[in-house]
Write a protein that binds this DNA or RNA. Structure first.
Lengths: 135, 135
DNA sequence: CGGGATCCGGCTTGATACTG
DNA sequence: CAGTATCAAGCCGGATCCCG
């Protein structure tokens, strides 16, 4: 809402990419999922249900604002379910929806695959840097 | 190289996230892969080998600079192979490495899954907006 | 505790122009 | 054609304050 934004309630990482969102609607959701905090949040929630500040601890380095935005975006996309209890102090639990679990599963498959091949990547990087970085 | 950057030859989307790259090396590669242009580029290259400007056409909306940076990052990670021929005019072809194909495959699996469920997502979004966006 | 609103700095991006 | 250098602008993301 800082500038020319007015219609969209939540954006997170879309504002500048409306063009693409229009051309390909899934792009927006994909950005939420694969984005930095989205991926980490899905990864955390894949292991169970957590409260806001529990998630903050698990998703290391995230600020309240970004976690809040990320959760809203994922909730809006139907990947995360938010359960608020009007107790005092308030208690809010977040968990993945069935769809969210499926998405998280595929995402984690990709992540784990890449992590499993990091040694190859590291070798490739060194070669690349040795050839071009030297000069 | 705009400011405090000096050691890393190529960054694309890392400069600000060094902290995380340090904590989890795969994070950087993941960002290259799942990032906006990275994903589109891998998707395009998954279908075959292409020249620079061919890719520019296929990856709609990408600027020369971003395509160049993206390709360099992916090449550095060992996911893309660059074949330059010293002819005149110069001809450079890009194609996925075997590792790149595996990664692209999993990425596309995720993307296609999300695209296949976009109707669910859209419904969820409308419900969400109806409840909270109304006011 | 759970989260919304605001301010602000810095990185990322996108045109443009130039080289080989 | 295949890129690189420069420049300006814009968005992301963090810190802070505040409310329920």
């Amino acid at each position: 809402m800082t500038s020319t934004d007015s219609a969209a309630p939540v954006s997170v990482t879309d504002s500048a990419y409306d063009v693409f969102a229009r051309a390909c609607p899934s792009r927006g959701t994909l950005e939420h999922v694969t984005g930095r905090w989205g991926a980490l949040t899905l990864g955390a929630l894949h292991e169970g249900s957590f409260r806001f500040n529990e998630l903050r601890r698990r998703v290391d380095g995230v600020s309240e604002k970004m976690l809040s935005q990320t959760l809203q975006a994922l909730e809006r996309d139907g990947l995360v379910h938010r359960e608020a209890q009007p107790t005092n102090p308030p208690r809010v639990d977040y968990e993945l929806t069935p769809l969210g679990h499926e998405v998280a599963g595929r995402l984690l498959a990709l992540i784990e695959f890449v992590e499993g091949r990091m040694d190859d990547v590291l070798v490739a990087r060194e070669r690349y840097d040795a050839e071009r970085g030297g000069r």
